[in-house]
């Protein structure tokens, strides 16, 4: 076995220590501003790819790009929105490049997801008499997935991720008025789906009474 070259070792150590103060500052700022949104990004990536491996790759790639271009992030604006925009662009590029067909949903995969978390997540609103509250996570999610992508996307960004209309408009490259009307129509479609589930499960809705 080769003995490590002390000179080379010294160079390696120096390189490691030679992290410039500016680079060091960037790292700390990046961790505070960007890395804190890791769970939200993974979650969204999982919802759009429906595949844990793809989601991981997508998030990793997003952070690599975000770190490289962190200087172009406008300080004081919403970093989470900036990251989501990068992730979305990445997603579009990857699916175009591989000519994969986006929006294909593996329903068995969703079932598995919900199966694995079924017992760990219990809602406290279970006793609520509102029929909505007796619905299963899985049904609500299936209803969401049944929507055309343009509606599902704005609902996810607004209701799940809590972005403002302005942030969403920027992410989906559409005017705020479009975001507004997509949310309205999307929620109406979703409502109809949920009422359909409620009816097949034997719950009466307000309109039946």
């Amino acid at each position: 076995m080769d003995k490590p070259d002390p000179a080379q070792q010294r160079i390696n150590m120096q390189t490691h220590e030679l992290l410039s103060p500016a680079e060091h500052k960037k790292q700390i700022e990046f961790q505070n501003e960007a890395v804190v949104h890791l769970h939200a990004l993974y979650n969204y990536a999982l919802h759009i790819t429906m595949n844990p491996d793809d989601a991981e790759d997508l998030v990793q790639d997003t952070y690599l790009k975000a770190y490289r271009f962190f200087n172009s992030f406008e300080r004081g604006t919403n970093c989470k929105a900036w990251l989501f925009k990068i992730l979305k662009n990445n997603y579009i590029n990857i699916f175009r490049k591989n000519s994969k067909e986006p929006g294909k949903v593996d329903y068995d995969l969703i079932k598995d997801f919900y199966h694995s978390i079924k017992d760990t997540r219990r809602d406290t609103t279970e006793a609520d008499s509102d029929y909505f509250h007796t619905m299963l996570h899985e049904e609500v999610y299936q209803a969401l997935l049944s929507l055309p992508e343009e509606f599902r996307e704005v609902i996810q960004l607004c209701d799940i991720e809590g972005f403002t209309y302005e942030e969403i408009a920027n992410m989906v490259d559409s005017p705020i008025g479009t975001v507004r009307s997509r949310l309205f129509r999307g929620r109406k479609l979703l409502r109809a789906q949920l009422e359909g589930y409620a009816r097949t499960n034997g719950f009466t809705t307000d309109t039946d009474q």
Binding site: L46, F113, D123, F132, H133, I155, C158, R187
Partner: peptide, 18 residues
């Protein structure tokens, strides 16, 4: 209706950890 639909999505869509 719209308000309740938003609530159900917020409450019922499960979030996964990385």
């Amino acid at each position: 209706d719209a308000q309740r639909t938003k609530m159900i999505i917020k409450e019922r869509v499960v979030r996964f950890k990385a």
